[in-house]
Design a protein around this nucleic acid. Structure first.
Length: 676
DNA sequence: GAAAAATGGATTTTT
DNA sequence: TCCATTTTTC
């Protein structure tokens, strides 16, 4: 007989703290962590340990005996949510299981799944990603404009962005157009009609787009008393990160959720609000003290990141904004090198300067990964990219196609989506059109036939289904059935990973090999997707998360570096994507009027202030060295070569805060001849 | 249904 | 200029 040994879970002491909060935090951070009950606004300057404070607050609450499911922690991105969870777990040496931590959309999805029936959503709504939404809008555009015979109608992507902005800001479509898209005024009525149709189509096919996850969430709290009762009771503590970038809907959601316990802690920096173009409103954070008249306000103003020289420049810049909570960041570091304002002839010389300087920095002990090149818009990186490749400096450029929006991933998933939600027509047509012989027309016909069968997938898989169709189409349909059939077997549909394996085995594998030149890479992607799927036992949950999660492959590595060793590449990034990160040396390129601030932001004080905040974000990324580069001419596709004035964001600075540098070149003629 | 020609548009981007 | 998308053509 085997001897039994019983493993007992270690007992957690109720209110005995394992963490020495006093030692881990500065005074203001400590205040937040231990006293932030009731409505609280934490104004956290750049580099002031904002994330750290939030994490310790959560740990503190848990140690005080608050149950994990009573804490709601909302973040801006999935990545941030993952980081928070991991760090809380690391602090407490335990699993943070039960914590409601994620993005607004993620938590909305989770809440809606619980009450989908009460909301009349059925038990199987699917989520449309950006591309799906656009496709659906496209259909609607066609329907609406064919009747009115409209020529030169805006692109579906434009229509969708208007609809989405309208939803997120809760401003009517007509008003959104009037305010932000005046040149589309003549289409306002059409847009309204498309909006109505789009909503109707989503309802019919059981789809929610990203915006609906927020809209329906509010509806849930307003119209389903049981849901409201449950969530307002459950979330004793609501914590929101990056509050300056929340939009109207998100603000409304938090207001409702915190209604009962009123422990709402929002953290952010109004000086870093840079997402108004997707309906974020800085007013949410500015008005917080008015909405909660008893709100406590905390300021975190010690900056641990940058030298005094860099911070002085940042402080002097943001001071020009009117709409803000005035703050003065104090550096915890030494005075440091004076930032340099470098004037170069054109973008070619700009690239040359940046490259040479980077090599010098490397020689003086910097790793490439200590350095970043930041820019306002992606296209500004082109020449720098070229130069890096030419000089063999390995680099990574942030952005690129998102993993889960790539064709092959969506193809493979479409079969699973049909199983999860048979009324998902988009996935039907996607999966059907993969088969040779079936085009858009026949896909629609088949979908109608399936609809007539009441979307009974088992019936669809029988040989009799579709027997009236032409031979070629039947052949394709037969193959489609072959893929779908195994997915319906009992036991399989509980395992998204097995389902994906089946899809690959039944022919998609071959399809990838035959249709994509980089087939090997794509198949590897799909293996990765299967690994990810392995952690799920519920199909719908898996599909929801896949759609809501940005890819693990957001970066493209540049090749041709020569060095095969494990190298740490240099980063090229837009300023938006650099938010929250830091480097020892930062180059901000393209600091010219018209580029930065962007020409389209110049006519309006609000936009201009946002551009200045963007500049502020850029310079506060630097820890030790900051280079502001001004290309004095640029090539415009309409006007040819244009003279660039320096950016007003530099001109308005006190001139003792930076050092002027002019670039001399050995052989200015050579380049031109070389290029001709 | 695929290849060739024409057109148009060019901030920022997560979910 | 350069790219992606749409329209046209075979």
């Amino acid at each position: 007989m085997t001897k039994k040994y019983r493993l007992v879970a270690p007992e957690k002491p109720a209110a005995a703290f394992t963490i020495d909060y006093r030692a881990a935090l500065n005074d203001s951070q400590f205040d937040v962590v231990t006293t932030a009950d009731g409505p609280c606004l934490v104004l956290a300057g750049a580099g002031s340990g904002k994330t750290r404070t939030l994490i310790y607050r959560v740990a503190y609450l848990l140690e005080k005996g608050v149950r994990p499911e009573e804490i709601l922690l909302v973040t801006f991105t999935n990545k941030a949510a993952e980081e928070m969870k991991t760090r809380v777990e690391g602090l407490l040496q335990m699993h943070s299981k039960g914590l409601w931590c994620g993005t607004f959309h993620h938590i909305g999805n989770r809440s809606l799944r619980i009450y989908s029936k009460a909301l009349g959503l059925g038990d199987h709504f699917s989520i449309l990603d950006e591309e799906d939404s656009r496709d659906l809008v496209k259909h609607c555009v066609k329907t609406v404009t064919s009747s009115s015979g409209g020529l030169k109608f805006p692109k579906p992507a434009v229509v969708h962005s208007v609809l989405s902005f309208s939803a997120n800001s809760q401003i009517s479509i007509t008003d959104v157009i009037a305010r932000r898209y005046p040149y589309l005024a003549q289409f306002a009525r059409d847009f309204e009609a498309i909006g109505t149709l789009y909503t109707e189509k989503k309802r019919k096919t059981n789809h929610l787009d990203y915006d609906d996850l927020l809209l329906k969430w509010i509806e849930l709290l307003d119209k389903v008393p049981a849901a409201k009762e449950r969530f307002t009771a459950q979330f004793r503590f609501c914590l929101v990160d990056e509050y300056q970038d929340t939009n109207r809907l998100q603000h409304e959601i938090i207001r409702r959720l915190a209604e009962r316990h009123r422990n709402v802690l929002v953290v952010g920096d109004d000086a870093q609000s840079i997402y108004s173009f997707r309906a974020a409103q800085i007013q949410n954070i500015l008005d917080f003290p008015d909405i909660y008249s008893d709100a406590k306000i905390f300021k975190l103003e010690t900056n641990y990141r940058s030298t005094k020289a860099i911070l002085n420049l940042a402080n002097d810049s943001i001071r020009h904004n009117k709409r803000q909570f005035p703050k003065t960041l104090a550096s915890a570091r030494g005075s440091g090198e004076t930032p340099q304002f470098v004037r170069v002839r054109d973008t070619g010389q700009e690239a040359g300067f940046v490259a040479q300087k980077i090599l010098e920095l490397r020689d003086s002990g910097y790793e490439l990964s200590d350095i970043a090149i930041l820019f306002r818009a992606h296209y500004q990186a082109a020449e720098v990219e070229l130069e890096m490749a030419k000089r063999g400096i390995p680099y990574v450029i942030r952005g690129g196609i998102r993993f889960f929006e790539q064709a092959h991933v969506k193809d493979a998933l479409s079969f699973l989506k049909i199983v999860a939600n048979p009324s998902d027509e988009l996935s039907w047509s996607r999966a059907l059109m993969l088969q040779p012989g079936i085009g858009a027309g026949y896909a629609d016909k088949i979908i109608d036939l399936a609809d007539a069968e009441g979307d009974d997938l088992k019936k669809v898989c029988q040989p009799a289904f579709g027997s009236s169709l032409p031979a070629k189409v039947r052949e394709g349909l037969h193959k489609f059935k072959q893929v779908l059939r195994p997915l319906l077997t009992d036991g399989v549909s509980d395992h998204p990973d097995t389902m994906l394996e089946e899809v690959l085995a039944q022919g998609y594998n071959k399809h990838v090999l035959m249709n994509f030149e980089n087939a090997q890479d794509r198949l590897e992607d799909l293996r990765e997707l299967i690994n990810f799927a392995h952690t799920y036992k519920d199909l719908k949950e898996f599909l929801g998360d896949v759609t809501l999660r940005e890819g693990f492959k957001g970066e493209t590595l540049a090749e041709g570096s020569g060095e095969e060793e494990v190298y740490q590449p240099l980063l090229l990034s837009t300023i938006h994507q650099a938010k929250g990160l830091e480097w020892r040396a930062v180059f901000v390129i393209g600091l010219a009027e018209g580029l930065f601030p962007h020409a389209k932001s110049m006519d309006n004080e609000e936009n201009l202030e946002e551009e200045r905040r963007l500049f502020y974000v850029a310079v506060t990324r630097a820890k030790e060295e900051l280079f502001l580069v001004h290309p004095m001419t640029r090539y415009d596709y309409q006007a040819g070569t244009v003279i660039n004035r320096p950016s007003m964001f530099v001109e308005e600075l006190r001139s003792d805060l930076y050092e002027d540098v002019e670039v001399e070149e050995d052989n200015p003629e050579e380049r031109t001849i070389y290029l001709e």
